[in-house]
Amino acid sequence: MTVVIVIAVLLVIVTGVQLLKIAELRAKSKGENIWEVKEKDGKFQASLMIVFLIAYMAYFFWQIYAWGDRVLPEPASEHGVPYDFLLNLTLGIISSVFVLTHIFLLYFAYKYAYSAKRKAYHFAHSNKLELIWTIVPSLALTVLILFGLNNWNKIMKPVPAETEHVLLELTGQQFTWTARYAGEDKKLGRSHVTLIEGANATGVDATDEFAKDDKIVKGEFHLPVNVPVQFVFRSIDIIHSAYMPHFRSQMNCVPGVKTQFNFVPTKTTAEMREITGNKDFNYILLCNKICGAAHYNMQMDIVVESKEDYEKWLAEQKSFVE
């Protein structure tokens, strides 16, 4: 099989060489240079620019049509709403810029193809134009920056201690996640990698009073709807990243450092199943920072339910001391 392919390739190459030689000889026989761009060839390439404009724009719109609904469903968190608004606003702006500039670019590329009858217009600079297209983008960007930073500051603020919230630690490691709920005392017990042993996979300090009522959970973790959840992220080996796309949430898990993120889930799993029309839908936690061979399969399900269901579920989970 390999031999056949090799021979086929060689034949193609030899044919190509011969074709090129013929083309050069033909040009020479007509008294021309093969490398000179003839006006009609140039005009043909120019017309391809218009074909390309139409095809590229059609391709762009076709993708939106064919795949536009495959992107993430509506946000399942409180900050997800202004997030999606800003995202769609930005996408709207850049799509318009994308389409408009391409129309100008490719139309000019078509219209001004070389003709011996014309002369190009020796127009070397215009301060006015430079100012216009410096100031207009600056204004658009200022809007995006202000919106963005406003959201950013709100999103990155930790949940104030007095507000009722769920305090949840997620520990990443090759290649699994472990969730730990702070118990009734609303504090997470201390932990350190040197304390990792056997069943204590995340190194919780058994001598710490606050650790005794912590609940450790694997496989899936639950959240009550409309209650803020304050995450604390850890890693015990290398950098991972806790990505919860439906909640518009992502934060790196770094060994030696505790990072935080928080959001308010606003849609229960049941609701989301209805919205997406997928009865097997589940929220999910993915690892999103390259972490080794099984990086592609490091996940944990997330269930969002009513407060009562959540408390029922939590009560069934074993606390650390058990």
Partner: peptide
């Protein structure tokens, strides 16, 4: 600036 350079040029392809 690139687009404006193409405008009213006499482009050899």
């Amino acid at each position: 600036n690139y687009i404006t350079t193409l405008w009213k040029g006499n482009i050899v392809y």
